[in-house]
Amino acid sequence: MKNKLLLQDMKAVPFLLPFFIVYMIFTIFPVIKGLEMSFYDWSLIGKLDFVGLENFTVMFSDPFFWRSLWNTTLFVILTTPTMMLLALGLALLANLNTKLQTFFRGAYFLPSILSVAVISFLAIFMLQPYNGFVNTILHSIGIEAEPFWLADKYLAWITIVVVTLWWTVGTNMILFLVALQDIPESLYEASEIDGATRWQQFWYITLPQLKPISKVILLLQVLASFKVFAQIMLITGGGPGGATRPLIQYIYESGFTQNNLGYAAAMSFALFFILLILSIIQLRPQRSEES
C-alpha cells in the first residue's frame, strides 16, 4: 500500500523536474551567487576582493540609497491605495448588468497587454509640452498654463502614478471581478427580502465578501510596486535630477555604469529583506484566520 502511494508520488516527479531544474538554475542559483557577490568588491569582469560586510555598512550611510528607497516607498504609498480603489470601482462597473459590460471589461483590461516600452512611449508622446495631446486639450478649454508633466518633480510623480494605474489596473480589476461573481446570489436575494437598500447590500455583503481577495491584491500590489523600475526609467529616467529614481534604478546604475556589482548585490538583498518582512507581516494574520 505504502509502495503504491510512493509510486503515485513518483509519477509527479518527471513533470515537476523540468520546472524545478530551470528554477534552480535561473532563480535559486543567482540568489545564492548574489549573496556571495554582496560580500565582495565585484566588478563587471569578476571577483576582486573579499570585503565582508563593507558593502552593507556603506549602504546604510549612503544618502542615495535612502533617497531612492524613499522614492520606491513613495511610489508604493501613492499607487497601492489608489490602485485598490480604482480596481474595485472598475470591477463594480464591469459587473453591472448593462449592454456595455463586455466593453468595460475589454477597455479597462486592454492597456495591461501592452508592453512597458509601448505605454511609456505613449505617455511621453501624450504628455509632451507645447504640442502634446494633454496640454493641447488643456489649452483648448482655456487653460493657459504649460504644465511640464515630465520635468517638474511633483508632476513627474503624478505622471508615473497615473500611467502605472492606467497600465496595470486591468489585472486587479479582473481579480475583483472574479471575486464579485463568486459572491452567492442567495445572499443578495435574502437581503432583498429583509428590505436592504443597494448601499446596505454593498456595505454588508459585497465588501466583506471581497475581503480575502483584497488581501491577496494588496500583497501582490505592494510586492510588485516595490519592484518598480521600467516605466520610471523609460518615462522620466529617474529625473528630474533623481527626484523619481527608484531603488532598482540605483541598483542598476551602481552595478552597470559605476561597475560595482558587489554594492548593487548588497542593495538588492536589502530590498529582498524588505519584501520578505512585508510578506510575512501580511501573510501572518491571514493564516491565523484560515485556521
Binding site: 520635468a151 517638474d152 518633480k153 529617474g238 529625473g239 528630474p240 535630477g241 533623481g242 527626484a243 546604475e253 555604469t257 559605476q258 561597475n259
Partner: peptide, 23 residues
Amino acid sequence: TVHARGIEDIMIRNLDLIWTDEE
C-alpha cells in the same frame, strides 16, 4: 579615468537641477 561614465551620470543628474531651477 575608470570613473568617467559614473562621473558623467552624476554631472548630468545634478546639472539638471540647475536647468530646471530646482537648485
